[in-house]
Amino acid sequence: MKELKVDPIKNGTVIDHIPAGRVQRVLAILKPRATDVVMMGMNFSSKAMKKKDIIKIEGRELTQNEVNSIALVAPAAKVSIIRDFKVAQKSRVEIPKRIEGLVSCPNPKCITNAEPMTTIFNLEDSSSRDLACQYCERVFTADEMTHI
């Protein structure tokens, strides 16, 4: 018994290799519509990660932008677009070089926490997952960020 603890989907998106315990955070970012059919699996065993979470969304294909928005909480996630029960497209998430309006600045003294404005973070370099706030100039690791 290796797979299929949740039903396969006909059309939609499968997000695999979410770190165990983070599936709810990923869902909070993706904000499924009230009518979306969503299956969520937690603590599946995984060779690479020991334990992992998984999400299947029926009837909705995520765009690359939507996919990348989960990169901060699930950097190793693999995303498959399913059409007629077959994998039509596979991709990995990538932290965008510039992240606008997605996460809040952890620095309480940052102006972005005081004014009605959009946060902007820039990826320090592509090898790290450190993000620099465009405003207060402080650098944070991806794990310190809170999604808006």
Binding site: K109, I111, E115, Q134, Y135
Partner: peptide, 10 residues
Amino acid sequence: RHPMEGAARY
């Protein structure tokens, strides 16, 4: 001058 960090950039 402003007490919040990043105010001038904004």
